[in-house]
Design a protein around this nucleic acid. Structure first.
Lengths: 190, 190
DNA sequence: TTTCATTATTGAACATTGGTCAATAAAATT
DNA sequence: AATTTTATTGACCAATGTTCAATAATGAAA
């Protein structure tokens, strides 16, 4: 038997996360198995359970980081200079779609996973991202928008990304459509 | 061994579909197993494979019927009397949300399943339903709408339903929100 | 240096899954 | 009565998530 690796290639949470994220993104939640992750890490699948309670927990830690990335995108657009507030608003919405469609698998993992195990973990991430989104929109519109209107905009954006994530269409292929969708939404609040 | 049932309770496709639909709706695609279906049917799981090529094929035949149901809903709203065309337009959109949220598991199976096996089968259903939707909207608006605008409306509706399907919120709980979302969209094309 | 406790890793084992297929019996046909 | 067709069975396979006793590597105490 060989029940242990040398200390030098200690199995760290970091290493597991790196490999697991790649596999989750490439194959999705259910197809990415603990055993496949273990093979890439050159360790046994059991070892992963020493560092993470279960598959859902491992997934959760990965996806939390992705939400932070989305928040960063939104913040950076807010920080960018733009001619008008409406231009900036357009940018925020457009970039949200761009993020979703250039990280489709991530978006899917973040917002579309329906696995019961996972569901109990994911709460804070989506909420926090939405707050960012809402606050940005609120700060960029002259007319005071109702909470419901902002929520409608968000859901409408989400619908766009969701649909093209499902059909696996690249952002490049639908950027004109994205643009007109955003303009459509802006028209609704003008 | 008892390699066959009496003829009277012959295993029909109909019987399998009835049991399978119930299980798919209650537990979702992946959790509903062929073996569970077989137990309820009092047959072996192997027998199901005589009638259906595989799980995805069984799923497909079930879900096709659901798309027809959605189309019926849309048509019946079109047939209903209403004060104005705008009122009717409101009804169509509102009822779409209602359908989605009162048949959440169905909607999920119809529009949100990401399983690779299933993906290859599902094409026609969603397309046909969208055509119904688009045609209805087109017939109800005075101003000639562009294809893009109609598509934006559809995606925005889809986003609403998708979100509340995921959080498993009952239609009753969000009917006011649904109403304001629909009004929000109507405003965008006025 | 030797002992001992802690920490990390292994892989066998379990239950469950979708799917295949030879065996076989019931039903229909000749 | 014999034969063909049709439907059903359940053993079997490979894969999954998860658990856990066994065990080795490590660091601290003696």
């Amino acid at each position: 038997m060989s029940p242990r690796k040398a200390a030098q290639d200690d199995l760290t949470k970091e290493a597991i996360i790196t490999v697991a994220r790649d596999l989750f993104v490439r194959e999705g939640y259910s197809a990415a198995s603990m055993r496949k992750i273990a093979v890439t890490l050159h360790c046994s699948h059991g070892a992963i359970y020493y560092h993470f309670k279960n598959k859902a927990q491992l997934f959760y830690e990965i996806i939390e980081a992705d939400f932070q990335k989305l928040n960063q995108v939104l913040e950076s657009v807010l920080a960018e200079p733009a001619e008008t507030n409406e231009q900036k608003l357009y940018n925020i919405l457009y970039r949200y779609i761009q993020f979703g469609l250039t990280h489709q698998k991530h978006y899917e993992l973040m917002f579309l996973i329906r696995d019961d195990d996972v569901k109990s973990y994911l709460q804070e991430g989506p909420n926090k991202s939405y707050l960012h989104f809402a606050q940005a929109i609120n700060s960029l519109t002259e007319k005071q928008l109702s909470i419901k209107e902002i929520w409608s905009i968000y859901l409408s954006m989400h619908g766009f990304v969701t649909h093209y994530c499902k059909s696996e269409t690249a952002f490049e292929e639908v950027k004109e459509l994205a643009s007109s969708h955003v303009n459509f939404l802006i028209k609704a609040i003008r």
